[in-house]
Design a protein around this nucleic acid. Structure first.
Lengths: 344, 344
DNA sequence: CTGAAAGCGCTTACAG
DNA sequence: CTGAAAGCGCTTACAG
């Protein structure tokens, strides 16, 4: 049973397909009564315009491709939720795909998005491979990176929205210093992550400025800053003796994994070890968890990214590049303890 | 800068567009050398076939519409992750939309999916409104409900995949009885939810069979079984005196909210109150949380749903209806305590 | 204000 | 094995 087309509607209404098309598109050159009559017939017939055909001629799909490493993490889940909302508010639909720069599947993924004729691409990535991927693979489709960019001059010809990771790392170190910690550990940055590198730099610069001793344990286990990887890393670190009194983790999920390992090994948090996360996912606020963390404003990030991408899609301004940095916010809960004498 | 089309490729290769189309579609009637040569040219030119045009003529988009109430809950997030994976394995893409039966936006949403010409629709819903929505609004598009269905004879003409919620509720009651609980509370079922009604029935039937006293507090706060709603409900319940020694919640998220309220009110879990969730979300396993729960196998649910939907899409078998029920599994952790004397 | 005609980028009988 | 032609369901100058 074939679907009703505008041809059917035209026949029933006794007008041409041109006129039906005009009614459907709120064109100004149509008599209001004609339009109403046609729209009524469309309703009666259960007619639904075929977006494939419309997009084929208008060469606009009103679909935005969103590529992110995975959906399982709560940070990415929250982000995609907001992206969908802001896109919809502007009349666009999201086509969600999972893939990460550096992966073999990523090329096919971009080819797929091109074949779908998406109007724009949003790449959510912390990887250093993202910078090269975006201009080369986006193949003339407007695209925005949702993630941090190296501070070099060669990396500024890109459109990106990110939290300010250098400031995030610096804030973490300053906060731990303020609580009296002098030996600190950055547990779990990935080597291929621009985001983590910038946080690390901010963390180390600030620690050095305050004469703290900072150690780094890289995450070479796999691509994700997941609870599982945080757990494994922490099991190794916390099994023996360790001088640090505080741990800074690159994600709350990872911090939760650290918490689990500490729990199993009898290392009290925050008694023996203070723990500071990143992201402020929903579950960081859970009772008995109460993780202190640096909040990434997912809503603001999503809104800025959609906003920037749609500027590129809808306007034909002269070529320009925008880098928007949003400052993370410290959320104090109970997983970091002050080492200073009580009377201050 | 217009994109390369098969016409361009045909001109460069010195063949007709028909031949290019055949090369692209692995048609058998083409000489292998010709095909290789054309594909090479496609690669060189960075040609990407336009799915809009292809779908317009083939009337198959290889896109599946997935409608779910929201993405913020971890259960739905996990589910959509698996749906995407299984669909991709079968060569289909997911178009993810948020909406719930009973909402005003749901009609527009279905109209949108029809306009997108999706090959099939997957509706994730616990609502009793879903049964009527699916056959009437799916408008000739194959569709599957991911959620439970009332046991009436009139509700069997639908394709659905679900966990067996009656058995889930019964298992919960039986487990609490086994631990020695005699006064139990089912906190938070929604009145419009088939899922919750079936769980409740299983819970009450079993409780009655074991002569337990079971009370029910409905969630009239809003549509979601979220942590926030669980918290609000529990604040009211746990503030005064209450005779129950165990609470069964319709979702882990909700149970986590209950936990938070209990924590604030000084009600020890599981000391004073045992707590049993549903879903087995990732964060139920967190240290210090360790929520006992009934696991819904999201992977199996997703796989069955995609499998069933694609049967309807790809085969033209005689009309048939399938209802697949998957049995939930009890996961014992530390949030439920035995009231029985230790020596058994 | 309305319509006939061309065209968007493909696929698919049909003829050779 | 290859190609000319019709057509998928729309939009958009262009002419009236």
């Amino acid at each position: 049973m074939a679907r009703t087309t505008i041809k059917d509607i035209a026949r029933i209404a006794g007008v041409s397909v041109t006129t039906v098309s005009r009614a459907l598109n709120d064109a100004p050159e149509i008599r209001p009564e004609t339009r109403e009559r046609i729209l009524r017939i469309c309703r009666e017939q259960g007619f639904r315009i075929n977006y494939l055909a419309r997009s084929l001629v208008s060469s606009r799909t009103h679909v935005l491709g969103v590529v992110l490493p995975d959906l399982s993490g709560p940070f990415h889940a929250a982000l995609s939720l907001h992206l969908e909302r802001y896109a919809r508010e502007r009349g666009y639909q999201i086509l969600l795909c999972c893939g990460r720069p550096g992966d073999d599947r990523i090329d096919d993924l971009f080819a797929f998005l091109v074949s779908q004729r998406v109007d724009g691409i949003l790449l959510v990535s912390a990887s250093s491979a993202a910078q090269e991927l975006l201009p080369s693979r986006a193949q003339g489709i407007p695209s925005v990176l949702l993630g941090d960019v190296p501070p070099e001059a060669s990396c500024r010809r890109i459109n990106a929205v990110s939290t300010d990771n250098y400031v995030g790392g610096a804030t973490a170190a300053a906060y731990l210093h303020r609580l009296g910690h002098r030996q600190v550990l950055y547990l779990g940055p990935r080597r291929d992550s621009v985001t983590h590198a910038l946080r690390l730099q901010g963390f180390l610069d600030t620690a050095a400025a305050w004469q703290m001793e900072a150690q780094v344990v890289y995450n070479d286990l796999g691509a994700a800053s997941s609870a599982a990887n945080g757990y494994r890393l922490a099991r190794q670190m916390l099994a023996g003796d360790f001088p640090q009194t505080a741990v800074f983790a690159p994600s709350d999920a990872m911090a939760l994994g650290v918490l689990q390992a500490a729990d199993e090994l009898g290392v009290s948090v925050p008694g023996r070890l203070s723990l500071l996360g990143y992201d402020d996912i929903e579950y960081a606020a859970l009772p008995k968890i109460r993780l202190s963390t640096l909040a990434q404003p997912t809503g603001a990030l999503a809104r800025s990214a959609v906003q920037l991408l749609l500027e590129l899609v809808e306007e034909d301004a002269p070529p320009s590049y925008t880098l928007k940095l949003i400052t993370p916010r410290l959320v104090e809960r109970s997983s970091c303890r002050s080492l200073l004498p009580a009377g201050r």
